[in-house]
């Protein structure tokens, strides 16, 4: 599988995303925010975490107009798989590839810790190796991760199973205590209607080796690989 990882000015998880991609046996392509063309044969584009453009104006608001984003939008609209992690999720929302927005954490604090995520829908390119309701341990590190959208958008996401991950207790309960940022309905990750674009606030690329405390983040990379191999068969 060919994975492209975009670096924006201020990205700081691009190396981690490349590492996790290589760890799972993929060919990794480094993409630069000023690129105006994508390498041919790309299967997945990752928008990594960080503070693109210093989070000026709003998180993701300026990165969304980077030259490469025209190609990312075109790639997504053609069915290509796009995965935004943390700041990447914020950029995808600003770009209109995902619904909703990510705003200041409810407690106004930057939160950096391991959280537990419940997989809500396993019938997607990003979650297909998981079992329904599986609980993953993955770190978060963000100040603006409170997922919000209008009531009808949230209802639409829930009704069409576009909420892929929810913050839960280790036992899998979606409680207020398990919610690190005040996201509506404990939402940690969503996909678009056609299920080829996903945004996730936690960092699975930082949880791909047991040495680092958890390798549950591998599930995303293995799901993508499985999806692409089945797709090519």
């Amino acid at each position: 599988m060919n994975i492209g990882v975009v670096t924006f000015p201020g990205s700081n998880c691009d190396a981690d995303a490349r590492h996790a991609s290589a760890l799972t046996g993929n060919t990794v392509h480094s993409l630069w925010h000023k690129d105006t063309a994508l390498p041919s044969g790309l299967d997945v584009i990752i928008l990594p975490g960080g503070f693109s453009y210093g989070d000026y104006l709003r998180t993701g608001a300026i990165a969304r107009f980077s030259p490469i984003m025209t190609e990312v939008v075109r790639f997504a609209n053609a069915g290509g798989l796009v995965f935004g992690i943390c700041n990447g999720f914020q950029i995808l929302c600003e770009a209109g590839l995902l619904p909703g927005a990510l705003i200041r954490n409810q407690n106004l604090s930057f939160v950096c810790k391991d959280v537990f995520l419940r997989v809500e829908n396993t019938d997607t390119p990003f979650t297909n190796v998981c079992s329904p309701g599986q609980v993953l341990r993955v770190p978060v590190a963000h100040g603006e991760g409170r997922y919000t959208a209008s009531a009808d958008v949230i209802k639409g996401l829930e009704d069409s199973a576009q909420v892929l991950y929810r913050y839960v207790t280790p036992a899998g309960q979606a409680t207020d205590e398990a919610n690190p940022n005040g996201s509506l309905n404990n939402i940690a990750g969503v996909t678009n209607a056609s299920r080829n674009v996903m945004g996730l606030m936690p960092h699975p690329e930082r949880a791909c080796e047991l040495l680092l405390g958890s390798d549950d983040g591998l599930t995303v990379f293995l799901s993508l690989a499985r999806h692409c191999n089945v797709g090519m068969a």
């Binding site: 709003r58 909703g100 927005a101 959208a149 209008s150």
Partner: peptide, 8 residues
């Protein structure tokens, strides 16, 4: 287009 996000 840029200065505000109508979602929020």
């Amino acid at each position: 287009k840029l200065l505000t996000n109508p979602v929020m």
